[in-house]
Amino acid sequence: MLLAAILAGAAATGLAAQSFGSVVERAALAAGWEAWPWPFVEFAERHVARRQRRWDVARAEYEALQLLERAPRPADRPRPRERHRAAHRCVRIAVERPERPTWSGDRIHAAAVRLDRDVHANLLILWPHLWLVLPEEIRGEIGRARAALTRAAVLGGWALLYLALAWWWWPAVPLAATLVVISARRLHAASDTYATLLEASVRLHLTDLADKLRIDEQPMGPQLGGAVMRRLSSPVPATEPAL
């Protein structure tokens, strides 16, 4: 009976960690943060505005250094190290202009932003169809990257469980803090890998999907993306006239 109780408690703890991990994942990716309850949505909105201001300043500095590189006198040109540092400061805030309160959420959102800008493709509509034509090894790589993202979030769920024990057991505090740091770093790395694979898969295999859809062969670009999206998009149903 004691062994059964220990096993049941371990199973319940594992399920609780996974449940908390799903909460951590939704918070880290922040896909629908505009619908968060008050006061979380207000805090997130202010944080997004601050990140946008910081990103605008860093981006302006980077573009100014790029402009100085075209100076006719070599002495007036900045060192490459300065430009690399400015680019790194910008990327540390977000890869593209921030639209979400977290770096991981913005990193995945940046893949959709880039594809919409460069290829005129809506990743949300395109992805289920593209997934069916991807080679098995690529789908395996994407699945492993997505699983790594989930595991990093579950580690954050364990941190929340240990934090709940801090009232009775003080060593739980440094343990929870350590797990938070590790979880944050793994979320950062996993979201970067996952977003990179999503974007690369679209850029490399959009022509394969276009071939399946019997679209005339076109070079990779906005024309091909627009043609694919027109074929995949469902028409808006006509509204009945009011009587």
Rank of each mutant, 00 (worst) to 15 (best):
A4I: 07
A8Q: 09
L15D: 09
L15A: 12
F20M: 13
A27W: 15
A28Y: 08
A30K: 03
G32N: 06
P39Q: 01
F40H: 12
F40T: 13
V41M: 06
A44K: 00
V48N: 00
R50T: 08
W55A: 00
D56Y: 02
E63Q: 11
E63F: 08
E63W: 10
Q66R: 09
L67S: 13
E69K: 06
A75P: 14
R83M: 12
R89A: 03
R89T: 10
E99M: 05
G105T: 00
A110E: 00
L115M: 12
H120M: 11
I125G: 04
H129C: 03
P135I: 02
E137F: 10
I138K: 05
A145T: 06
T150S: 12
R151C: 11
A159Q: 10
A159D: 04
L165K: 03
A166S: 06
W169K: 06
I182E: 13
I182F: 02
S183V: 09
H188E: 08
A190T: 09
T196C: 08
A200S: 08
A200T: 08
V202L: 08
T207M: 05
L209A: 03
K212L: 12
R214S: 14
P222V: 11
S233W: 10
V236W: 13
T239Q: 14
A242V: 15
